[in-house]
Write a protein that binds this DNA or RNA. Structure first.
Lengths: 239, 239
DNA sequence: GTCGATATCGTGGTATACCATATATGAAGG
DNA sequence: CCTTCATATATGGTATACCACGATATCGAC
């Protein structure tokens, strides 16, 4: 848990100069954001990782009272990131394989709907921007820079969802993203997946450009369901 | 707001007899459930309806302190049921037409995925149960008992989602259901919609029985997207 | 009578003290 | 040395007091 506590440097430290304010967010929201980011940046599937949180400890680390911390933790609990066990402690949740697969399936449902909506509502310019995300991979295979590719991969999916124009879907997908990203490190390592992934993405872009609603939807769904199947087969380390 | 406060009778009133306990839920959770149900049962689109809540008032109504109330309200806020405006008050949110449509689209995405999963994983027995939901409407047209039909309608969609077997999708859909149910009264009134709805449902059941994955998914999606289109055209009263 | 400054109040935000209880700890007895 | 029971402790849950700040009302001046 040190990794989380230490990430949490300062919050209320007086803003250096004027204009800095607009700091109108409540301590609860600040704590929420901070904790969420900290959890997202923690490799919770590392068996060594300590997953227990401590209200009082967070209190001193953030320099605020228990109240905003507790409210922030309540939100995180509802979002499925942590679980509080009365008189035992608060624990970051490791998702089981089943839960991870369900999240990916849900993702597939939402992103394919976004793709459908994109073919109906997005502008040509917006769709065209999708191609630029892969410009840097035109000449060299993605296996040479997996890390960058992984970021571009996430950016692509996020962009497709944004094209759909549904705030609701974007919001719902954000949290799924955080959860799924936690096992990204493990799943991307197979470089052949990255190569096939790019092909899929290009096909999706083509379908969007041609305004082929059904095809775009189907390709998007299948692409993500493939990930679910892959996780099912190759991620035995998940509970 | 009286309608909400008055709904809220008692919580900690001593359980009548023994065995009643297992009341292990925290006051926060009790308040959360109570408030959520109260909001769900309130016709928030009635222009007359008072939408403002008051922490202190809820405090006295529920007989608990502000702390669990506030934590419950935080959760409801994150779920999009209320919005707290500092120094102004806490308000139940009326969804705009756009938001309502987005929620229905999201519903369509999730339920169609559930239908897909159902064709792959559900047992024949489970699928067969779907037909029983409409037994009572075999002989008389649904227009004669719209209220019962409305319940059966919701039961059908809930059942399809359950057949998918994804806890995650079921959870996510619960809240969507509550939001969408709020305008149900207005949309069901067109009796022809109810009649067409039943036909759609029967087709969906057939597709599920035949394990036609693509068809079940497509019919389910289209059926719900039709509702979205209907709301878009006929629910001008939404913001 | 109208506009503006000031005081009061209502409201959500925060800090803190207190409580209940499961778990841990250790002493006593066998 | 093991078992058992009593006490201590840690931890999440709850109640409450206080605070900051905006809104509104009231009063005064022009």
């Amino acid at each position: 848990m040190n990794s989380i506590v230490t990430l949490v440097q300062r919050t209320t430290a007086a803003t250096p100069l004027a204009l800095a304010p607009l700091n109108a967010t409540s301590l609860r929201d600040q704590a929420y954001t901070l904790l969420k980011n900290a959890i997202a940046d923690t490799d919770i599937y590392d068996p060594q990782q300590e997953l227990r949180l401590d209200e009082r400890q967070l209190t001193t680390a953030l320099g605020v009272s228990r109240t905003p911390i507790r409210e922030a933790l309540s939100l995180l609990e509802q979002e499925g990131f942590i679980r509080t066990v009365p008189r035992r402690g608060i624990y970051i949740i490791r998702k089981s394989k089943r839960e991870m697969i369900e999240m990916i399936q849900m993702w597939a449902a939402l992103e394919s709907m976004a793709a459908r909506l994109a073919t109906l509502n997005a502008s040509d310019e917006e769709i065209a921007k999708l191609r630029h995300l892969f410009d840097e991979f035109q000449n060299s295979p993605p296996s040479e820079h997996l890390c960058e590719y992984s970021d571009a991969n996430i950016a692509f999916h996020t962009a497709v969802i944004a094209l759909g124009g549904s705030q609701m879907i974007m919001e719902a997908t954000k949290n799924l993203m955080l959860h799924v990203r936690a096992i990204r490190r493990a799943t991307i390592s197979q470089s052949d997946r990255a190569a096939r992934s790019i092909i899929d993405h290009l096909k999706i872009i083509e379908a969007l450009e041609r305004r082929d609603t059904e095809l775009a939807e189907r390709l998007t769904r299948q692409h993500t369901l493939d990930l679910a199947a892959h996780v099912d087969l190759h991620c035995g380390f998940l509970g």
